[in-house]
Simulated assay, not measured.
Amino acid sequence: MSGNRLQVRPWLPGVELFHADFSGQAFGRHSHDAFAIGAILHGVGGYQCRGVRHALPAGTLSLMNPQEPHTGHAETERLVYRMLYIEESRLPGLLGRKQLPRGFSALNPTDDGAVAEGLRRLAEQFERGDALGLESELLALLEQVFVRHGGLRPVQAAPRDGGVTVRLREYLEAHYCEAIALEQLATLLQRHPRHLIEAFRRAYGVPPHTYVLQRRVREAKRRLLGGEPAVEVALALGFYDQAHFSGTFKRFTGVSPGQFRRTAI
Rank of each mutant, 00 (worst) to 15 (best):
Y85R: 06
A264R: 11
L132K: 03
A158D: 14
P154L: 09
Y81W: 12
R202M: 05
V206R: 13
R102N: 08
F260N: 04
S23I: 09
A230H: 10
L188K: 12
A34Q: 01
Q7I: 10
P207G: 11
A114M: 10
Y240C: 11
H175M: 02
R223W: 07
P159V: 03
R169G: 00
Y171F: 14
H73Q: 13
V8S: 14
L17S: 01
G226W: 10
P229G: 07
M83R: 07
I180M: 05
A203N: 04
H70Q: 11
R222V: 13
M64K: 12
A58G: 06
R169H: 06
E170P: 08
R102W: 08
G118M: 03
A236I: 10
V164S: 10
F104T: 03
P154R: 09
H209A: 14
P13R: 09
K250A: 15
G118I: 02
R167A: 12
F146R: 04
G254C: 04
G133W: 03
E170W: 06
R191V: 03
Q125I: 04
F146L: 13
L168W: 02
C177K: 14
Q214I: 03
E127D: 15
L12G: 05
L235D: 13
F146I: 00
G45Y: 01
R167G: 07
L213P: 00
E87R: 09
H54Q: 14
K250Q: 15
V145D: 03
A230R: 07
D21K: 08
Y176M: 05
G113E: 09
V155A: 14
T248R: 00
L134F: 06
S105C: 12
E124T: 11
P92A: 06
Q242R: 12
A243G: 11
P92Q: 03
R53I: 12
C177S: 14
L6W: 09
M83I: 12
A106Y: 05
G43E: 05
P10D: 10
L235P: 01
R153Y: 04
F249V: 06
V44Q: 09
R215F: 03
R167H: 07
Q125Y: 09
Y176F: 15
A203F: 02
L17I: 08
H192A: 13
L152R: 02
A39H: 01
C49I: 04
G133M: 03
T71M: 07
R120Y: 12
T210C: 11
S2Q: 15
A39Y: 06
L237S: 00
P10V: 02
P101G: 06
K250Y: 10
I37Y: 01
G238M: 02
F18T: 06
W11G: 08
F249N: 01
Q214V: 07
F252Y: 15
A55T: 10
V155K: 14
